[in-house]
């Protein structure tokens, strides 16, 4: 499964992309994994998860070939 990191999340993860073999199951479980891996992400104001370029809910299940993106607080405009 491919994970993409942006903005401050990219700095906290130490890179823009990561390939993992764990199968998180749901977006909520992926969030728990993320905080275990990178505890500093807990300090961010808000983290959204996008699955296949769409904002996902915690209940949503993740498939092996999904593109997961870790979206830290937005600051465009």
């Amino acid at each position: 499964m491919k994970i993409m990191f942006f903005g401050i999340a990219k700095e906290l993860a130490g890179g823009a992309t990561l390939e993992i073999t764990e199968k998180p199951g749901t977006v909520g479980q992926f969030r728990e994994w993320l905080i275990r891996q990178y505890p500093a992400m807990r300090e961010l104001r808000k983290v959204m998860i996008a699955v296949n370029k769409t904002y996902a809910t915690d209940e949503q299940t993740i498939a092996d070939d999904d593109e997961i993106a870790v979206i830290p607080p937005l600051s465009g405009g």
């Binding site: 401050i8 904002y55 600051s75 465009g76 405009g77």
Partner: peptide, 12 residues
């Protein structure tokens, strides 16, 4: 512009 700031994945 208000919605762009809330939903579009861009960071500065």
């Amino acid at each position: 512009i208000d919605t762009l700031k809330e939903t579009v994945p861009i960071w500065k």
